[in-house]
Amino acid sequence: MELTEALHNNRYTIVDKWVVYTLATYQATDFLNKEKDRFANPIGSTIRTSLKTLFQLLLKGGDGAGYAEPLSQIMHLRSVQEFTPSQAVAPLNAVKHIARDILAADKQTKDLVKDLYDFEFAVDLAVLAAFDLYMQCREKVYRIRIAEIKSGAAILTDSACPSKALKNIRKINE
């Protein structure tokens, strides 16, 4: 059996484990795993859909051109969720180990483990792309901050009036 075929045959198991692993980085893992309605569970469904797409792309290999789309979904989420950069990206790496475990566990596919190099390289590319996207998202958050400040919303807390009034009150009291 070919490696690609073996991975393809095991795609449901692998992606499932991958999703479970990724969602395990949240406290409410159980809910995120179970609730299938994409509107009632945006985190869970985004992770699931994106990893599924990403896995198909990883199997194709190549230069990793299409990775950005599904990765962007995941990184948009994880870059605003109190993860450190490494925590945010780490679950992507997990698919290497998951694939290896699954192939090694089956006699028929055990020998294919040594051929995983290309697949793992594809994962590496995805992880690198994810770092870029993580940073893009972070920068975007800061740009939005600046935009808000520029739009004048900050006047809410930067105007001087109450403290000025307070000074007047103090003057009266003195």
């Binding site: 692993y21 395990a24 980085t25 949240y26 406290q27 969720q81 109190e82 993860f83 450190t84 490494s86 925590q87 780490a90």
Partner: peptide, 12 residues
């Protein structure tokens, strides 16, 4: 998992 799951962060 261990290498990234550190610190007392709440959401993670």
């Amino acid at each position: 998992s261990q290498s990234v799951v550190q610190g007392p962060s709440l959401a993670t």
